[in-house]
Lab assay of single mutants.
Amino acid sequence: MTEYKLVVVGAGGVGKSALTIQLIQNHFVDEYDPTIEDSYRKQVVIDGETCLLDILDTAGQEEYSAMRDQYMRTGEGFLCVFAINNTKSFEDIHHYREQIKRVKDSEDVPMVLVGNKCDLPSRTVDTKQAQDLARSYGIPFIETSAKTRQGVDDAFYTLVREIRKHKEKMSKDGKKKKKKSKTKCVIM
C-alpha cells in the first residue's frame, strides 16, 4: 500500500485542523484551538488504489514558523489553505509557496490551493482571484467548507493525484537520464 505524506499549511484560523478532522473523523470542530502540530493517518481508496494518507496539520501562528522547514522537508505534497473571508490569509499563500519551493529546492512541488469556509456569506476573496492565482502557479484550486464537508475529500484526493503525477514524471525523467548515460565512448 502506497503511503502519501501530505502537509496542510496556511495562516492561523483558516480551518486547516477543521478540514483535516472532517476528512479523518467526519465531524466539524467549530471551536478554535490553535494547533502546534498534529499528525493523522487514514486509509482510503483513490482511483481504485488503496493508500495510506499521513497528514500533518501544522501551526499557522507566526511564533511556530521555525518548525516549518522541518515538516516541509518531509512532506510530499501540500494543501495551501486560505479562508475566503480573510484576504490576508490569501496573500500569505505566496509566502508559504515560496518557502516550500526553497526548502524542497524545487520549482515543481505537488500543491493544491484550497479556499476554505465557502459556506460563509462574508467572502472577501473572489473565486476568480483564487483561480487566477492557482493557474499562475500551475496547481489545482478547490473551494471547501469544513463545516458542510463540501470539497473536503476532493481537496485531499486531488493532492494525492498531483503527487502521483509528480512521481510518474520524475521516474520518466530518471529513465531518460539513465538511457543517456548508457551511451559509451570508444577510443581507438
Rank of each mutant, 00 (worst) to 15 (best):
E76H: 13
I93V: 11
E107T: 12
R97K: 14
S106W: 14
R102D: 03
L120Q: 14
Y71S: 15
Y71P: 15
D126G: 09
V81S: 04
Y71F: 08
D119L: 03
L79Q: 00
R68P: 05
L113Y: 10
S122V: 10
M67D: 06
I84D: 15
D108W: 04
F78T: 01
Y96L: 15
C118F: 12
T74E: 14
D126S: 10
D119T: 04
V114M: 06
V112M: 04
V109Y: 05
F82P: 00
D126C: 10
M67N: 07
R68S: 12
E107V: 11
M67H: 07
I84G: 15
R68L: 04
A66W: 11
G115N: 04
N116Y: 01
F82M: 13
P110S: 03
P121K: 11
S106I: 10
M111E: 00
I84K: 14
P110E: 01
V103S: 07
R68Q: 08
G77P: 00
V103L: 12
R123E: 14
V109L: 04
P121T: 12
N86I: 02
G77F: 13
R102A: 13
E98I: 01
S89V: 03
R123C: 13
T74D: 14
D126N: 08
F78R: 01
E98S: 05
T124D: 14
D105M: 10
F82L: 09
T124H: 12
V112D: 00
M72T: 07
G75R: 04
I100A: 03
K117H: 15
Y64G: 03
F78G: 00
G77R: 00
D105K: 14
H95R: 14
R73T: 11
A66M: 10
G115P: 06
E98G: 03
N116I: 06
E107D: 10
R68T: 06
Q70C: 06
L120Y: 15
V114F: 02
F82I: 08
I84W: 14
Y71E: 15
S122E: 13
Q70H: 09
G115V: 12
T124C: 10
N86A: 04
K104H: 14
K104F: 08
Q99D: 04
C118G: 11
G75E: 04
S122K: 09
G77T: 02
Q70K: 10
L79V: 10
S65E: 11
K101C: 11
N116D: 06
L79Y: 02
L113F: 13
S65I: 05
V125M: 12
I100R: 01
K117D: 10
T74G: 12
R68G: 08
C80P: 00
G115Q: 05
V125D: 12
M67K: 06
T124E: 14
R123P: 12
Y64L: 05
V125N: 11
S106E: 13
L79N: 00
D69I: 01
L113W: 08
S65L: 06
V114W: 00
N116H: 14
V81T: 10
E107G: 10
Q70G: 10
V114K: 00
K104E: 04
D119R: 03
R102G: 09
V81H: 03
V114T: 02
V109W: 05
S122P: 09
F78D: 00
V125W: 09
D105W: 04
K101G: 06
E107S: 08
M111Q: 00
S106V: 11
V109F: 11
L120W: 11
V125C: 11
M72V: 04
D126A: 08
E76Q: 11
V81Q: 05
P110L: 02
L120C: 09
G75I: 05
S106F: 12
K88G: 10
G75N: 08
M67Y: 06
D108G: 06
K117Y: 15
D119M: 05
Y64D: 04
Y71A: 15
S65A: 12
L79W: 00
M111N: 00
C118D: 12
D69P: 08
S89G: 07
P121V: 11
E63H: 06
R68V: 04
E98V: 01
A83E: 15
S106H: 12
D126L: 07
A66T: 11
K117T: 12
R102T: 07
M111C: 05
